[in-house]
């Protein structure tokens, strides 16, 4: 049935079936080219290109100040872009901001819940901003209270809820309009491990339902858990792109051997160890308290260290993680 709507009423399309995405067809949900954001003299985002396909979980990784949040605020059609092009759901944020926002779900870095209202009221009121009717909202609110595992607190004020509960409510709230894309800006920052795992479980469930997720994080485990594909940002630029596994393969070795020597002896030990490494892909890194050997075979590297007459206080062999990639690409120095 085709309903004719007055021109100022924007029709949201019916949910489409999940199609296999052909990047060549260019039907990316988000497409950015040369995307730039400056604040006066300061360049927060320095001309980045990326595309997010339907059903994908896409991550922006980077240290504080890398430009992740600025990028997210532009995708959310809240902050205007300074230069470049940005298309979301095939539309231009400048001219169709309200329409695009009507089809996005946003989990901001800082909660914007109303602490004086109850869990149920927060969900209801937020749905009203999207123009949803009371009748539409009644079942939706119940469904989301259940999704957020807040049934017992549904009529409690938000104020005394734990950080994890508030975060789940914020995520539930962002789903009130059945968004085509869910934007999550550091969804689990500040939560305890239990709360983070519950949240990941919720997000994983959404991903399986085919919701397109775009998230920023500086937690590597979060990125590995949730992202199909991610970009690493540093100083407003994209410095690497790919799946977590691809990035580890590309920018790190298979294993890392961590050898701990007495204080003051680490640098000298590293120098001797560096000689036995395969210079093309393997490398050694000195930290104040230990030496890291990025190698294909960690056990063998430890054995060879002992053969060389080195005796570390302790040694540990582990798989390379996204964290190694991240530190390699964005450096160890603090960004404050």
């Amino acid at each position: 049935m085709l309903r004719l709507l007055p021109s100022h009423v924007v029709a949201a399309p019916a949910p489409r079936p999940l199609a296999t995405v052909d990047p060549a067809r260019g039907d990316a949900l988000i497409r950015a080219e040369g995307l730039t954001k400056t604040f006066g003299e300061f360049t927060a985002v320095a001309g980045i290109d990326f595309a997010v396909e339907r059903g994908e979980a896409f991550g922006f990784l980077g240290p504080n100040g890398a430009g992740k949040s600025s990028t997210m605020r532009m995708i959310a059609c809240v902050a205007p872009i300074t230069a470049g092009t940005l298309q979301i759901l095939g539309m231009d944020p400048v001219t169709q901001g309200p329409t695009i926002r009507g089809r996005l779900g946003v989990v901001p870095q800082q909660d914007t819940l109303d602490l004086e209202l109850t869990v149920r009221e927060n969900l209801y009121i937020y749905g009203r901003y999207f123009g949803m009717s009371r009748a539409e909202l009644r079942p939706k609110v119940e469904e989301l209270i259940d999704f957020a595992q807040l049934t017992e607190r549904a009529d409690a004020k938000v104020e005394p809820l734990s950080g994890g509960m508030k975060r789940r409510l914020t995520i539930a709230r962002s789903l009130i309009n059945d968004p085509d894309i869910l934007l999550l800006d550091e969804p689990t920052t500040g939560l305890d491990p239990q709360a983070r795992h519950v949240l990941w479980d919720r997000l994983y469930r959404l991903k399986q339902q085919g919701v397109t997720l775009v998230l920023t994080t500086h937690y590597m485990d979060e990125a590995e858990q949730l992202c199909d594909r991610l970009v690493v940002m540093d100083s407003g630029r994209i410095v690497a792109e790919g799946s977590p596994l691809h990035l580890i393969g590309e920018h790190s070795t298979r294993e890392v051997a961590e050898l701990r020597f007495p204080p003051g002896e680490n640098a000298a030990a590293a120098e001797r160890l560096a000689g036995m490494l395969d210079g093309a892909s393997e490398r050694a890194e000195v930290l104040p308290d230990r030496v890291l050997l990025y190698v294909a075979d960690g056990e063998r590297a430890v054995a060879r260290a002992h053969e060389q007459g080195l005796s570390p206080v302790s040694s540990l062999v582990r798989r390379s993680t996204l964290e190694d990639v991240f530190l390699r690409l964005t450096g160890r120095s603090l960004v404050d």
Binding site: M1, L2, R3, L5, H8, V9, V10, A11, A12, P13, A14, P15, P98, T99, G102, Y129, F130, G131, M132, E136, D178
Partner: peptide
Amino acid sequence: LDTPRRGVRTTGLRP
């Protein structure tokens, strides 16, 4: 044809 899931009014007094 695609049935509008919801008409979101973006102008006028209602928002």
